[in-house]
Design a binder for these strands. Structure first.
Lengths: 131, 131
DNA sequence: CTACTAGTTCAAGTTAACTTTAAGTCAAGG
DNA sequence: CCTTGACTTAAAGTTAACTTGAACTAGTAG
């Protein structure tokens, strides 16, 4: 597969694929002329990278999940702690969402006069979510 | 209140306060010599800004929520749609979290051999969460 | 009066994850 | 043989939200 086919199938632009290669996240299996040639397995790998990104891992963290030989080597402890982290984020966002829903339909003339909004404000001051 | 007092009470560094002022998010009420003087109400305003940030609003979006005279003027429709957006994000993150928890304790020798993990991978390929 | 401290400005630097640009190369079609 | 189009590289640019640095100043303690 050449880069444009990978781009198409993965949904990632070619520039991103080159960037990922440069970062060591993926590898082409060789060249045909100048052009990179990728194995079909690249797609699974890219899906894994996208998964990691979506879960909130940085590209550097993701890079650490691959052995030098290129196999995925995902530490279960890392997964657990990232899941815990996500769980915290979800809690914050949920509180925020509920507060926003409330504020959106609260009849108070100004949000500042609504006790629920006030509570939300105080919460917000304390918690800085990770993302 | 001078800037360091505001910094202390709000938990935001002075550099951030100056940056927010430059952006038009806050205003000092005057100067004493060189030094900015802030009214106590600045704290409520900063809490509102922090709330907005936590809810996923950009600083520019937050700036739009203030009238030129400096009063908060928060559009309920915007709140509603941001809440909806948050709700979507929460769904994605929840799926992700559950997948990670599963993967963390899944006994499959490699994650790739686990059907739940595979499902997670396919999901990831499709959904690009907003934040 | 002098030193010190806490503030000030303006410009430049930081970070992550890319994207864009300019200039070059190769394989294929006509 | 020449043009076209898809690819290549390396370097620079982008964005958001700040932070840092250098040079400067005003009020205060001694």
């Amino acid at each position: 597969m050449d880069i444009s086919e990978v781009a198409k199938k993965s949904g990632l632009p070619a520039s991103t694929l080159r960037y990922y290669e440069e970062k060591g996240l993926i590898r082409s299996i060789g060249r045909q002329g100048l052009k990179r040639v990728f194995p079909p397995s690249i797609l699974e790998r890219l899906a894994l990278i996208t998964l990691g990104r979506n879960a909130g891992f940085s590209l550097d963290e993701i890079a650490d999940m691959f052995t030098p030989e290129g196999k995925a080597d995902i530490d279960r402890v890392k997964l657990q702690s990232k899941a815990d982290e996500l769980n915290e984020t979800i809690k914050h966002l949920t509180a925020m969402r509920d507060g926003l829903y409330h504020a959106a339909k609260c009849p108070a003339p100004s949000h500042f006069e609504c006790p629920t909004f006030q509570k939300l404000l105080k919460r917000a001051a304390k918690t800085r979510p990770n993302k």
